[in-house]
Amino acid sequence: MLRCGLTWGDRTVDPMTHTSAVAVKATDLIKTYGTGDAAVRPLKRLSLEIPAARFTAVMGPSGSGKSTLMHVLAGLDAPDGGSVIVGDVELTGLDDRRLTRVRRERIGFIFQAYNLVPSMTAQENILLPSRLGRASVDRAFLELVAERLGLTERLHHRPFELSGGQQQRVAVARALVSRPDVIFADEPTGNLDQAAGAEVLDLLRAAVDEFGQTVIMVTHDAGAAARADRTVLLADGRLVDTLEAPPPRSWPPR
């Protein structure tokens, strides 16, 4: 396995020795839609901690609140109660402008579909968050990520010229290049065939193992969740179980 000593912003991180840190911490989250009898409560005093530099899967049946949890953790939606801390930033109470900035600088996204801006090339899509924040771009790191993801030849293609798997790789590269505190992946394999889905899961693993990233993946695919280090199970707006996966070297099962 490749080992990289990387400069992580102003911090130097050794991924194998830094596993005890907490990347995202949620406490007593409450979220309610609607009022009265029609009220739906996707989150009922839910608390959880996501360890840094680990691959965490969030699973649960439809209506268990996993999508809402992700919206709240990623600063896309505000909870009605409780608090969310990403890295060292408390999201609760931030206004839209500051939340946007947190998303841009500390959070990466990989969605099921509509991952890329169709009118931009792969490279422009990858650099989009830093351009939006007018931040300088680490060219060397971009090249490193592109090479690792096999995108070097494809950087100047537009999304419609790429296969579904390649598009997802561009999305992964975009999430990696801005060096966020945490990457959220929303059903990243949902729209892909099995081979491409497996490839994306490999890339998410690599993001954790080789680039020391923290990845949170929402999925209802047990097979996908099996690639994670930990799996958090939700039901009815509450955390019901946490499974630690067996050590990576026993994967894939024979």
Binding site: A74, L76, D96, R97, T100, R101, R103, R104, E105, G108, F109, F111, Y114, N115, L116, V117, P118, S119, L128, P129, L132, G133, R174
Partner: peptide, 16 residues
């Protein structure tokens, strides 16, 4: 709409 939403998610402000 979907592109604008994506831009918002990856860090574009409403003002932008």
């Amino acid at each position: 709409m979907s592109t604008l939403a994506l831009l918002r998610a990856v860090g574009a402000t409403a003002r932008q």
